[in-house]
Write a protein that binds this DNA or RNA. Structure first.
Lengths: 214, 214
DNA sequence: ACCTGAACACCGTTCAAGT
DNA sequence: ACCTGAACACCGTTCAAGT
C-alpha cells in the first residue's frame, strides 16, 4: 500500500484507540503491534506519529488530565472549598481510567494538561496567601493522596477468601476478607475521611500563618 | 548439566538478586532471562521456584515490607505518635527501593509482611478506641499518602529546564524548573507537612468520637 | 510525508530431556 | 527435584523500499 493520499492515522486517533484498549484490557494489553492492529495499520506506522511508546503513554496520560475539571479555581471560592472540589474531580477522572494511574503518577514533566493542573492549584494557594513553599507542599501532598488512592484500591488489595487471613497470624484482620466485596464503598468512605483530615489539617496550619503584609 | 546435586537456586537467592537488579537498573531491567543470567543459570530455571514472574514480584515486594519497622506499635504509645513513626519508617523503606513502589501499591493480597503491616496499624487504631470502619479509613488514607509519595517524587515530576514552562501558558510555574534540582528536600518537607495535616485532622475526628462505653 | 514488510534483539512461559 | 536447550508466541524499534 505504502503512503495513502489521505493519512490513515493521526495522534488523536491513536490516543483514542489506545485509551479504549487500556480501559478495556489494562496497560499490559497496550503493545504497539496490538494497537496498530486495532487501528488497521502495521506496527511501525505508529512511529510516524510518536517517537517512542513512552511518548504515546505521555499523550495518553495527558488526555486524562485534560478531563479534570478546573472551574473551581475560577471564581473567588475559598481555597479549602476549591481544593476539596478539585481533589474529588481529580479522583473521579482517574477512577474512570484506573489502569492509567501508574502513568499519571510520573508527574507533569512537559505534559500541558498536567501542568495546567499544577499551575491552577499552586496559583489558587498563593493567591489565598499561602507562602510558595507551603503551597508546593500542599499541592504535593494532595497529589500523592489522590494518585495513591487511584492507584491502589485499599479494599481491593485484600483477597475475598474467607480463610485467607489466619487469626493466629493476623489477629486484627478477621474481617479483612469482607473488604474485597464492598470495595468501592470502603474506598469512597476512606477517601472522603482522609481528604477531610488533610484539609482540616491544612486549615489549622493556615490559621497559624503570620498575618499578611500585602 | 541438568540437575546439580546441590540446588543452585533458592527463592531467597533469587529475590536477593532481583532486588539488587531492580535497585540498580529499575523495574524494566528485571526480565526472567536477565535475572537468570545474573544468577548464572538459564532462564527457565526460575520456574522451579516461582510459578510466574508476578509471584516473584510479590515476593520481592514483600521483602521490602518486611523491613518496615513495627516496633512503635508494641508499647502503649499514643496512636498518633505511633502512626507518625510508622508512616515515616514506611516511607523510608520505600525510599530505599523506589523502583518497587508500583509493586507495593498493589495491596497486601496474600503477602505476609504486608499483612503484618495492615494488622498492626488496624490493631493499634481499634485498641485506641477507633471504630473499625474509621480505623480502616485511616489505614487506607495513610497508605495512599505514603505509597503515593514514594511512587512519584513531586519535585522530580518537573523538568529542570529553565525554559520548559512558558509563563504565558502557566503563570504560576515560573519557579517550577527549580523544583527538580532541590528535589529531595522539597519532597521531604512536603511529606512532613502533609503527614502533620493528616494526623492533625484525624486527631480532630478522634476528639469528636462518642465517649467510649468499654 | 506516511505507510509497508523484513529484520534485530529482546520478552514470559512451556516442555521434553537429562540426572 | 532441579536444571538444560529448543520452541512458541509475543515484544519495541529501525530501516530500506514504496508512493
Amino acid at each position: 500500500m505504502a503512503r495513502p493520499r489521505k493519512p490513515l492515522l493521526s495522534t488523536g486517533r491513536i490516543v483514542e484507540a489506545a485509551r479504549a484498549l487500556v480501559d478495556a484490557e489494562g496497560l499490559a494489553a497496550l503493545s504497539t503491534r496490538r494497537l496498530a492492529a486495532e487501528l488497521g495499520v502495521s506496527g511501525p506506522s505508529l512511529y510516524n506519529h510518536f517517537g517512542t511508546k513512552d511518548e504515546l503513554l505521555d499523550a495518553l496520560a495527558d488526555s486524562v488530565s485534560a478531563r479534570v475539571d478546573l472551574s473551581m479555581f475560577e471564581d473567588g471560592r475559598p481555597w479549602r472549598t476549591a481544593l476539596d472540589d478539585w481533589a474529588r474531580s481529580y479522583r473521579a477522572a482517574l477512577a474512570r481510567h484506573p489502569h492509567l494511574a501508574p502513568v499519571l503518577a510520573r508527574g507533569p514533566g512537559r505534559r500541558p494538561a498536567a501542568l495546567r493542573l499544577a499551575d491552577a492549584v499552586f496559583g489558587a494557594l498563593t493567591e489565598a496567601g499561602w507562602p510558595p513553599a507551603q503551597a508546593t507542599s500542599i499541592g504535593a501532598a494532595l497529589r500523592w493522596y489522590v494518585v495513591g488512592s487511584a492507584l491502589g484500591s485499599f479494599a481491593g488489595g485484600f483477597v475475598p477468601d474467607e480463610n485467607a487471613y489466619d487469626p493466629a497470624d493476623y489477629p486484627h484482620l478477621g474481617q479483612a476478607h469482607l473488604l474485597a466485596e464492598r470495595g468501592g464503598t470502603v474506598d469512597e468512605r476512606a477517601f472522603t475521611t482522609g481528604l477531610r483530615a488533610l484539609l482540616d489539617g491544612f486549615e489549622r496550619q493556615y490559621a497559624e500563618l503570620p498575618p499578611r503584609t500585602a
